[in-house]
Design a protein around this nucleic acid. Structure first.
Lengths: 181, 181
DNA sequence: CCTCGCATGTAACACGTTACATGATTCA
DNA sequence: TGAATCATGTAACGTGTTACATGCGAGG
């Protein structure tokens, strides 16, 4: 057996529960937070979150907050001392794999057989999608004075610049392809 | 039933077989090619490639090249007319989802509870990994006169710039964090 | 002769998404 | 009162990786 093994989603949960002055959160709450933040580089579905909450509670890394909020039935959790320790251990690990599946880029890569204008169309499609993503990120961004957590804000800045790079690359490449007929 | 459904890997295969003057390829060949090109944004394992080759052959989109190469037992395939059509249809689709799981970035995002120097360490780790990736990409790059396919070369250029952006962002952010104690 | 790379495959596993079921509450 | 949102869960499905089995051929 050994100690329970936690998925990455477990650390997302612990991470959202860890900051001081964060109220206890429900599975639903966590999902909402994921959807407006880590989703762009690390998604999580209910099918992962709810079972993982149970596992974490069984292992004593989080605990149910007994002071139920209002009448509506909801179970909120707060992180325990042990939970903080486990989160810290995971954060300190250096290994960090990155996985990507970019269908649009794959289409561009494989578009050798298309005509010149069709290839440009592929790049344009890629550009438009990134521009839409960028707009979503900008909508999330808080005014500097309202930023309460530094690291999430930095990561958002990273995303903003990244999508902008992609958009610029697409524009440059489209222009180049047009020039070369 | 309906017509057979192909995974994305099927289009990777068709895409590698499609260019004119490409010799027939085996599953092994395709895996090698994936590993030095699309892998960075679209990986494929033997466990996907071999079954998919069979499906594609059954559907008549690729066919076994009968002129077996040398004595060594290997099965090579070439694309058929139908295969080209199916590849083209897929290439022309506009929908293109992008999925990403970046553990390193997740660690940075959740590192609020670490000390200042530990957070910088996380960023440094991220920087180092991207630098290693960048070195790999640079090793793949061909001198301009040796480039035979335009689109793969463009995508490589995209990757080069992307990783460089990430490295620069890490450097900038590390400097900023250091300044702010 | 023995190891490495070529070559083909598959079964078990891990992971994640989707769809669905269920029910309460809020608000127009 | 009906729709939307809050809220919790799970089963089925799809996809992808890993580990393993197997065997040939080339070169030191």
């Amino acid at each position: 057996m050994g100690p329970p093994v936690f998925s990455n989603v477990a650390y997302v949960i612990l991470g959202f529960l860890a900051p001081k002055n964060v109220a206890p959160l429900s599975g639903y709450d966590i999902k909402q937070r994921v959807d407006i933040s880590t989703r762009f580089f690390f998604a999580a579905s209910y099918g992962q979150i709810y079972p993982e909450l149970k596992k974490l509670a069984d292992a004593g890394l989080i605990e149910v907050d007994e002071e139920a909020v209002g009448a509506r039935s909801r179970t909120t959790y707060k992180i325990t001392r042990d939970g903080r320790g486990v989160l810290r251990d995971w954060l300190m690990q250096r290994e960090a794999r990155i996985e990507m599946r970019d269908q649009g880029l794959l289409r561009v890569f494989l578009s050798e057989g298309l005509t010149g204008s069709e290839r440009i169309e592929k790049l344009q499609a890629m550009r438009d999608e990134r521009a839409a993503d960028l707009a979503l990120l900008k909508a999330i961004q808080m005014p500097p004075e309202a930023v309460e957590l530094k690291m999430p804000d930095l990561v958002l800045d990273y995303g903003l610049g990244l999508y902008q790079y992609v958009i610029d690359w697409c524009d440059r490449t489209i222009a180049e392809l047009k020039k070369g007929d």
